[in-house]
Amino acid sequence: MTLTVHRIGPACTIQDQGRTGYLDQGLSRSGAADGLALFEGAALLGQSPECAALEMAGMGGEFEATALTTIALTGAPMQASIDGSPVVWNASHQMEAGQRLTIGSVLQGSYGYLHVGGGIDTEVFLGSRAAHLTARIGKAVQVGDRLPATGAGCVGMKLRPDDRFSGGVLRVVASFQTSLFDDETLMRFTQTDFQRGPRANRMGMQLDSEGEGFAAKGQLNILSEVITPGDIQMTGSGHPFILLPECQTTGGYPRIATVLPCDMPRAAQTPPGARVRFEFVTLEQALALQAAYDANLSRLPGRIEPLVRDPHDIADLLSYQLISGMISATD
């Protein structure tokens, strides 16, 4: 079971949960920008969330099955069809040998994911299949590449996704450099509506706002110190970047706060122009929020449902909203 790549967007890479343990050698974790999407794909195909998938930034491609293949589509919704027939996002599907899956542009959010039954089985490097382009590990997927996989997943299942594709409130905790910013600046930071700027990749995402930047005291004399994904780093001009899985491991620009891991899928999926606000929570609140997120991940396999149901089996049919989300059949 292999998918052959016939067309591909410019920023598609193989990703999994990333590699831990090389921070001391200057190598950040990498891994999927939207970690929740990996768990959703795994639930849909009935496999491990450790499986690698194709991460598609903004734009997908065209993929041909060389044999009977099972796939799932999660993360930022994109236009998708198999041999010209539209297929549902956040669902698992079967492809016969020779069938072509076409994935277009993102409709909402930033990163879509193509999962294959058994997981994409590319070479493991330092414990992970995740590409880390800034570290020159792996490559962007190219036309002619093959995405090998060995297993078969369950198909015809769907999952209602957690809506995280249009920005919103990101919960943050104070970190060791937060106190370099005075109270007035921190207050203004939490009261500001930010907009995701055009500069974004897997290293970080720029945020724009009206008014003056957010500078720290003695900003230029700070010793380079450890960076963690989710850190909100202020550049020299005081404009924030949220740092993502391929961020550097140390840096001299001060960080005002750190986005909670459970809010990082929402942060990474924020599309250009969407609004973001920050809300400080205590470490105790953060632990509770993260615990709820982790519990939700473990419940995902129980939340999948058949894609097609006989209306006779649906007791509350009239409570369903059957119109919204329809698109023109002639588009």
Binding site: V173, A174, S175, F176, L223, E225, V226, T228, G230, D231, T258, L260, P261, L283, A286, Q290
Partner: peptide
């Protein structure tokens, strides 16, 4: 000794190298 984000601790021995 200070916290780093949600899941880290930093032990700093000086503010200069």
């Amino acid at each position: 000794v200070r916290t780093v984000g949600f899941d880290g601790l930093l032990v700093t021995f000086a503010d200069t190298m």
